[in-house]
């Protein structure tokens, strides 16, 4: 057992996914099974082994020139949105019971 239901609630809060109590219970079982299956990772002797974060060996310093290119037309940027007002994306109040501080 790696995670309690309470842990799973905390993870869901961080990932911003609302789960019902029933979903939390089922998710706790699933996650514990999956994490158990990851055990080989924790048992390897990895002393002195460098990590490979990028699969292409030696790839480095990829950059572009500082030149403007046309982006999206304003109306195209707005057309995809669930709710717009005054040319901006409208969202519900940020501070509430569930408010997102940073």
């Amino acid at each position: 057992m790696y995670l309690t239901e309470n842990d799973v609630r905390g993870i869901a809060t961080y990932a911003r996914i609302g789960l019902s109590d029933g979903e939390v219970a089922a998710m706790t079982v699933d996650l514990n099974n999956i994490i158990e299956s990851l055990r080989p990772i924790t048992e390897y002797d990895l002393e002195g082994v460098e990590p490979t974060f990028h699969p292409i060996a030696g790839l480095a310093n990829v950059m572009r020139e500082d030149a403007v290119r046309p982006g999206l037309a304003h109306q195209d940027a707005m057309a995809i949105a669930p709710h717009v007002e005054s040319g901006a994306y409208r969202i519900p109040p940020i501070l509430g019971d569930n408010g997102g501080d940073r």
Partner: peptide
């Protein structure tokens, strides 16, 4: 003083009307 943003080629320019200097990259499409 740069011409463009960090990770896309939209202009660094202040005071433009909202969401007029955006592209798939900086809008996170």
């Amino acid at each position: 003083t740069l011409n463009t943003k960090m990770f896309c080629s939209c202009p660094v320019d202040f005071g433009a009307p909202p969401n007029t200097h955006v592209c798939p990259v900086c809008l996170g499409l």
